[in-house]
Nucleic acid binder design. Structure first.
Lengths: 229, 229
DNA sequence: AGATTTATATAAACACTGTATATTTACAAC
DNA sequence: GTTGTAAATATACAGTGTTTATATAAATCT
């Protein structure tokens, strides 16, 4: 039986491959992702996957885009759960959602921001839209702060001249684009990423009774530094 | 010829294995590390390595300890290059050495702080001494700041009660141990790590004419936040 | 010196991995 | 009803870490 009749085939195999990949990643971690393992779980042979993804890296890229989409959705939902006038509240909501998503899906977080897949290099031109969207929630709040004259970021360093084209690419993703706001958002991002990445990598111990103490302290520091009240 | 005479053997094979591993990591990245590849480069067979390291993970652990030792040495040397009275100068020196080491050895940095080896989990009980030493440079400066009454860290969150034993383990590594100083050092570490890890992962663009703009801005912010002058 | 033990390598094999190629067959269109 | 295409399998190749058995150089003991 070289090709099973359609009744015995997995419907929506393209979708099922991704679902099974997520299952494997959640259970065994991203580095253990294996085409043959996915095929085994689906009851098909490994080369069948090549009908839907040209190679393993293409599958990983699809997974990364899905992860970014989920992550960005959580970020935007958190922002929009607070009235637009309450910029402090929006910032805190985004920050909490950031850590919460990472703790809920640590493997997805490492898939996006780490380098857990051997030999894989993210094709940024494909991933950029989803990645930019996920940062746009924070950018929009920083920019609202700036427009309200409440952004405290004196002498902020400009991006390297070579990267002005990349900065300009951002204009495609919302008209709230502003170089300073984007730059400040990137810096804030490095700060939450620093804590969260070490936290899920179990390289720093938890702080406070519920483990969030250090993160909350850092969010307060970020607000104090950048918000003019 | 099942065993070649000693004149044809690689002298100090244990050491040569590590050296060759570093070569491979520098050239192809940590995830591409392969026992067979090392053996090939050394002109031996792969199972010969098992006479010196019980499995691949043991070799990786040895590499991580070496990387931490190199990293910690750079941190301590940077601290000691500035007079003990100049705490600001020491902090800046440590911070610059941190980024410089990471940019010089990005694969080693990811080997230590990332998760680039599929299926590998760091055995902390083995790595702890080398890891603690590498943070001790920063801890000692923060503690000197505290002892001078110049540390500004009000309401800093305490470590989670479950991790008090880990905090107490630090007492073995220098008598300058203090829970608050260690905690603040950890937070400062998350901030430099946040920038540096995203920088070497090419996930943020460089800032300023030489690419260090964002990092220098962040070091200034750290000083402003924690130093009482 | 000769026998014995130990250390250190190779050889061969196993179970994996991603991937390329050829083959087979179900299904759709003319 | 024939033809063409799409989607799967079968097979194979080169790579990986690791295990086992085996051979021999070197060290030790008598």
């Amino acid at each position: 039986m070289v090709r099973p009749p359609k009744t015995q085939q997995t419907p929506n195999l393209r979708r099922s491959i991704l679902d099974t990949a997520w299952l494997q990643i959640a259970q065994l971690g991203a580095p253990a992702l294996s085409l043959r393992g996915i095929a085994r779980a689906l009851g098909i042979t490994a080369p069948a996957i090549y009908n839907y993804y040209p190679d393993r890296d293409a599958l990983v890229t699809a997974l990364i885009i899905e992860a970014y989409t989920s992550f960005g959705g959580a970020q935007l939902a958190a922002r929009d759960s607070v009235p637009a006038e309450d910029l402090e509240g929006r910032m805190v909501a985004i920050g909490n959602a950031y850590r919460q998503w990472a703790l809920t899906y640590p493997e997805r977080y490492q898939l996006i921001f780490g380098t857990p897949i051997p030999g894989y290099a993210t094709p940024m031109e494909q991933v950029f839209p989803a990645a930019a969207r996920s940062l746009s929630a924070l950018v929009s709040v920083v920019d609202a702060l700036r427009l309200a004259g409440r952004l405290n970021a004196p002498d902020f360093p400009p991006p390297h001249p070579d990267f002005l084209p990349v900065f300009e690419m951002w204009q495609k993703f919302g008209d709230e684009y502003n170089p300073l706001s984007l730059s400040v958002a990137i810096l804030i991002w490095t700060r939450v990423h620093g804590i969260v990445s070490l936290e899920i990598g179990r390289q720093i111990p938890p702080f406070g009774p519920d483990g969030a103490g250090l993160y909350e302290y850092e969010m307060q520091s970020i607000k104090k530094q950048f918000f003019i009240r």
